[in-house]
């Protein structure tokens, strides 16, 4: 695993990671963005190469959900083009970085693939902090894992209270394991829930690869666009002020909020 982290960092953006067209949502019934193209301001900024001036775009995504719903499989399918049918529980958190090129601009997606096990819920808060994207994974063949999605979102929101533009995705996995008829019933429920959570709904199969790449492209495009727009707004607010000033955490001076004694409400399954 570690080897792949370092190698993906060295590599230039692979042609597989180039996003030139605005990726579509999975379903019109539960999607975050109602447009069918990139925001014109973002297109303009990228065309004028202003993005470099805006700074390197990095977003943090956390992948959460019940135990063994297939969080790691989803990430591995995309990052390593691999699928391992044997289940191996994640210890703590796995970390992956993917570099994209969106509208000719570099974009980095950090993925924190968390453990679903109860044992690790106490440390989850540290890993959730500062997320821009929350991907809640459930197993389409296990309705309980869908019901629990609200609790997972609650825990993630709690650590990111006040964060602007948190993107939430609800992703059903193991689509290959369920008959089309049964799936339609699950989808109805899932879309209802996604709407209630203001989340975008996706259904994938990490085994066959169905919709996996499409999902991550959608995530990357929306996150990229969001971060550019936010930065533009911030700049309009404070013209002349230095970019990103005061955003960095200093270890020394302030007893930073990282050490708060907050306990995460554990999502019991």
């Amino acid at each position: 695993m570690a080897g792949s982290v370092s190698s993906s960092r060295v590599m230039q953006v692979h042609k597989d990671r180039v996003i030139a067209r605005f990726p579509e949502a999975y379903t019109k019934d539960a999607r975050i963005d109602l447009k069918f193209d990139f925001d014109p301001r973002v297109r303009q900024a990228c065309a004028n190469d202003k993005v470099n001036a805006v700074g390197l775009k990095i977003c943090k995504m956390i992948v959460i959900g019940d135990v063994s719903v297939g969080k790691t499989s989803l990430v591995n399918r995309f990052c390593k083009k691999a699928f391992d049918a044997d289940y191996k529980a994640t210890i703590g958190v796995d970390f992956e970085v993917e570099r994209f090129e969106v509208l000719n601009s570099p974009f980095t997606l950090q993925m924190w693939d968390t453990a679903g096990q109860e044992r690790f819920q106490c440390i989850a808060s540290a890993y959730y902090r500062g997320a821009n994207i929350v991907t809640i994974v459930f197993d389409v063949s296990d309705i309980n894992s869908l019901t629990n999605a609200t609790k997972w979102l609650e825990a993630a929101r709690k650590e990111n209270a006040g964060a602007e533009g948190l993107l939430v995705f609800l992703v059903g996995t193991k689509k290959d394991l369920i008959a089309p008829g049964a799936y339609r019933d699950v989808e109805k429920e899932a879309i209802k829930l996604a709407q209630a959570m203001s989340a975008e709904y996706w259904a994938v199969s990490s085994k066959t690869g169905e919709c996996v790449k499409e999902f991550f492209f959608r995530v990357a495009a929306l996150a990229f666009e969001g971060s550019i727009l936010r930065e533009m707004e911030r700049r309009q607010f404070s013209r002349g002020a230095q970019i990103g000033d005061g955003n960095a955490i200093k270890l020394k001076n302030e007893p930073s909020p990282r050490y708060k004694n907050t306990k995460v409400s554990c999502c019991k399954t």
């Binding site: 390197l56 902090r129 500062g130 990103g244 955003n247």
Partner: peptide, 9 residues
């Protein structure tokens, strides 16, 4: 990477 966030240091 001056533009750090909570997630990077």
């Amino acid at each position: 990477d001056k533009k750090t966030s909570l997630a990077s240091l």
